[in-house]
Design a protein around this nucleic acid. Sequence first.
RNA 1: GGUCCCAUAGCUCAGUUGGAUAGAGCACCUGACUUCUAAUCAGGCGGUCGCAGGUUCGAGUCCUGCUGGGAUCACCA
Length: 658
Amino acid sequence: MPLRKDQIHMTIIQTIQEGVAQAVKALYGIEMPAEKVTLTPTRKEFEGDYTVVVFPFTKAARKKPDQIGEELGAYLADAVQEVSGFNVIKGFLNLVVNDAYWSAFLEGIYQDKGYGRHPANGQKVMVEFSSPNTNKPLHLGHIRNILLGWSTAQILDAAGYEVVKVQVVNDRGIAICKSMLAWQEYGNGATPATTGKKGDHFVGSFYVLFEQKFQEEYKAWQQSEAGQEAFSQWKRDEKAVAKAEKAIAEAARKAEGKAEREGKTFDPADFTLEKHFFGSVFKNTYFNAHSALGQKAKAMLLAWEAGDKEVLTLWSTMNGWVYEGFDQTYAKLGVSFDKLYFESNTYLLGKDAITEGLGKGIFYQKADGSVWIDLTDAKLDHKLVLRSDGTSVYITQDIGTAQERYKDFGVDKMVYVVADEQDYHFQVLFETLKRLGEPYAAGLHHLSYGMVDLPSGKMKSREGTVVDADDLVAEVVSEARANAQERDTLSALSKAEQEEIISQVGLSALKFFIIKVQPQKRMTFDPKESVDMQGQTGPYVQNAYVRVQSVLRKAAGGVDFGGAKAYGPLANIERELIGQLYAFPALIQEAAESYDPSGIANFCYDLAKNYHRFYHDHSILNAESAAAKSFRLMLSQAVANTLRTGMNLLGIEMPERM
RNA sequence: GGUCCCAUAGCUCAGUUGGAUAGAGCACCUGACUUCUAAUCAGGCGGUCGCAGGUUCGAGUCCUGCUGGGAUCACCA
């Protein structure tokens, strides 16, 4: 009788742990809870499935590890039905689980395409990701964000949560005004349609144009009397200069070290007081107080806030172009959202919460009218939540938006996928929401991730080293196309089917490359490696799945799983594969709890790797017996199901052939 | 100056609650397609797990200090 799935999963490890706890009590009089027994998967080079570490018992038992191992092993082999054998090596007790147990397990799951997924747990979670600004197209950094957000959402779904996927569109502010202004001044009425450009790229080009014009203006001003006067006036502030000199020396030291490591030239002329002053100290002041373009952009922002009709029309037109572009990119990446929050609707939210919190003494007001929260007892700082003129800041908005979302969906948890430069912001936000007594406060999580670097260093928009999302997708897909043409395995299919597969393969290379790295780590993105399709890559995993599909097709009419029971003994690689399948549901749970999809990616790779080896070493359709054939087909089917589920959790689709 | 993140092979990365001789891929070298798809498999080469202490039967993993890299500490978002 096949065991029920949920029964079979979590039990063998627990069964052994119980057995060990019982054994040490009977043999040595040691009382110990079963879950404290250290049980690890047996290393490949030894025989066995699970290993009991016996060192912890040496003291109480007053015996040598090897002897304890022998005694425990004998006890377990006798007392635990599933344990069919054991060996002791250097104080480690390796236990062999009998074939019948594994066969029954496999038979219980191989038909289940959703194997590994958990039943609904009644909880609701919101995942926020992507959240772009509308002034320029998506780039590589957004791709990491989107892939993390999407896969986390899929994983939470598989772990039993009801998931709501949202993004906040940062559609207002000075940035979009810059694009609008540049279009108004230099656009001559051009549109994405008249230029044949994708909408987000079109608008982004005007943002770049604004920055160019601004830089021209600023450079000229720096040489002017007013500019030099500002500089020399600042130089009289000894404290500021001393601080700047320190910062410059530090920056120069780092740049020099870096140049040396990478064999590049180091130019000390880049680290002068004047460059530092105009580059970082004074730039905002210039934009706000001196720049003609800055004045115009700010005037446009004010007009927008005042509801100026003409400005609003231009704003919604240009944002509309951007959304068309974003939608195409999202569609290509295969992601979607359940709800969009627009900053233009939410930027005024949160004030009520501040007023309310002020009444409760959670916030305090300074003489100038500004409102603050004191978080020093939470090892944070004092934080402004309302300006002295009564207007909101970023965090005010986030408080209001969180409340709004809770009203909309009543979620138990909220996950924010945002780069690690905002770690502090989210600490403050979550602590504040906690003090406000929000019902979801315990379920807040910032899925923080490291920046994406290029082999040449940081991406810098000013230096034009930003990797565009659309270009990147096009590149991996065209690489996949070239590979497919060379291999010529798809020629029997229609053009549309071929293109779909090519896109699936190319995207899997890109997605897998990014998602296999743990979120909190900075990662180096080498474009050359990202299009690799051999080795530890998405296509490698897809290929294992495709091999199964091919075998199943070839066995058509002759697929018979019925004889599997009679098969035995299992080969090591077969046991190993089943052991991996066995661990999958718990892995999903773990990935959900840690909000980290990278483990799923590495699992898929390991499973595919073992399957490739199995496939190479053992014939399936021409197996030595009918029983072996049935069993291996069953195993192949189960591996394919698991690979597909696992890769889908990463947002990667599996082709039937490639 | 305060706080946070990161450091494992030439490069990119894994490494379960602390467990055996620290693993993959790429690159480089050698071999395997008459055989279910070679986007594959097998073998070789490659390590002071940043440094120094500490806890432990046992430390890449936990604690402390240091070094290096990154971020952050706005009435910006």
